[in-house]
Computed example of a mutant assay.
Amino acid sequence: MSSVLTLWQKSSSLPVVGPVLGTRLFSFAFSQKAPYFATIRPRFTEIRPNRAELVIPKRRGVHNHLGTVHAIALCNGLEAAMGALAEASIPGDRRWIPKGMEVSYTAKATSDITCVAETDPGQWTGDDPDVPVRVRGVRDDGTVVVEGVIRLWVTPKPPRG
Score class of each variant (00 low, 15 high):
110 T>W: 14
10 K>E: 14
7 L>R: 13
32 Q>C: 15
115 C>P: 11
76 N>T: 03
8 W>V: 02
16 V>Y: 02
147 E>T: 05
148 G>F: 05
141 D>E: 10
110 T>H: 15
13 S>V: 02
15 P>S: 12
70 H>W: 10
133 V>F: 03
125 T>W: 01
116 V>E: 01
151 R>D: 15
42 P>V: 08
154 V>E: 07
125 T>G: 02
140 D>I: 04
115 C>R: 08
39 T>M: 12
154 V>I: 07
95 R>F: 05
116 V>P: 00
122 G>K: 06
85 L>T: 04
50 N>D: 15
1 M>V: 04
120 D>I: 08
32 Q>G: 13
46 E>T: 02
87 E>F: 00
108 K>C: 03
161 G>H: 10
99 K>Q: 11
110 T>L: 13
32 Q>K: 11
33 K>V: 13
9 Q>H: 07
137 G>N: 03
50 N>Q: 12
43 R>F: 09
65 H>F: 14
69 V>D: 06
1 M>S: 10
157 K>R: 12
58 K>H: 15
136 R>K: 14
114 T>P: 11
40 I>D: 00
101 M>N: 09
113 I>C: 04
148 G>E: 13
133 V>Y: 02
135 V>M: 06
77 G>D: 04
81 A>Y: 00
13 S>R: 15
102 E>H: 14
97 I>Y: 10
155 T>Y: 12
24 R>Y: 08
123 Q>Y: 06
34 A>P: 11
103 V>E: 04
17 V>N: 09
154 V>H: 03
22 G>F: 01
55 V>I: 13
148 G>D: 07
115 C>V: 01
145 V>R: 02
58 K>N: 12
11 S>D: 12
57 P>E: 05
135 V>A: 02
112 D>Q: 06
136 R>G: 09
116 V>F: 09
87 E>W: 00
101 M>V: 06
41 R>I: 05
84 A>D: 05
1 M>T: 04
17 V>R: 08
10 K>P: 05
88 A>T: 00
69 V>E: 02
37 F>I: 06
